[in-house]
Amino acid sequence: MNLFVLLGIAAVMVLIQQVLTRWIQLNRIAWLGIWWVALWAAFSYGINPPLPNSIIVLFMAIITIALMAYLSADNEELEEARQSIVRFMVAQEYRIALVIVLLVIPAAVAAWTYASMNEAPQPPSSGRTIHPPPPSSITFAGNSIDLATANNPYRELEHTDEAAFAAHVANGRRIYFQNCFYCHGDNMQGAGMFAHGYDPLPANFNDATTIAMLQESYLFWRIAKGAPGLPSESTPWSSAMPAWELFLTEEEIWDVILFLYEYTGYEPRAQGMPH
């Protein structure tokens, strides 16, 4: 959050309400316009890192609809607003203001067009799918693994044999730092030494919306098959993840999964349950 900007916007709003309204009578349309500008400024400049333009457009569309609903939810207020617009359009006293508005609107459009044409060229943005859906089963070293029912075979050691479990986690730690941390980073935030070279960036496992929401069999599939194993739907995936089945054994992959959850403190999503 950019608190300085947000407080500034709030201060201007208070000033308008407490000071400006002593001299100028602001009708409902003017107030709604002020609110619209204030919220646009808050979304555009009050949040750090900045929101993508697509999100600002979405939020402002919702706010515009809401403000329009507020304006028209009361018959008397709407009629008053309509009359004030008509007054502004026809009354002699507003002639100069009307001319200014009629000049400012096309000038603003022209300025916006000029500014957007002068922006540095960018590749088009697109809605990217984050979680590729896994197949129902995969083959690993010639054996078929059903992803709907597969469990980490070493997970139950957590309760039955703590020493053996700790050994598997330690093995997972070794594998992670030998193979994975170059991209996913030493604290699993997706900020490894090679990360800056990728688009999109490597997954951040500390994020509550990545491995915390997934079953272990899903992670097994992603690690084992990597980018070459991604489904044909929702392409391009733009993933640089290697197919680790070529370098690691099945046990090593399950071990590294244990380590990922152990390090981040998350629990894997359980299988099945409701019905």
Binding site: M1, I47, P49, P50, L51, P52, N53, S54, I55, L58, I62, Q122, P123, P124, S125, S126, G127, R128, T129, I130, G190, A191, D199, P200, L201, N204, D207, T209
Partner: peptide
């Protein structure tokens, strides 16, 4: 209506540090 995966240009994604915005 806030999406989990955002539609963002490369520049915007880099500013956010990935596909996810830390606040959104």
């Amino acid at each position: 209506a806030t999406p989990h995966s955002l539609v963002a240009t490369v520049e915007e994604a880099r500013a956010m540090g990935g596909s996810h915005h830390p606040i959104l």
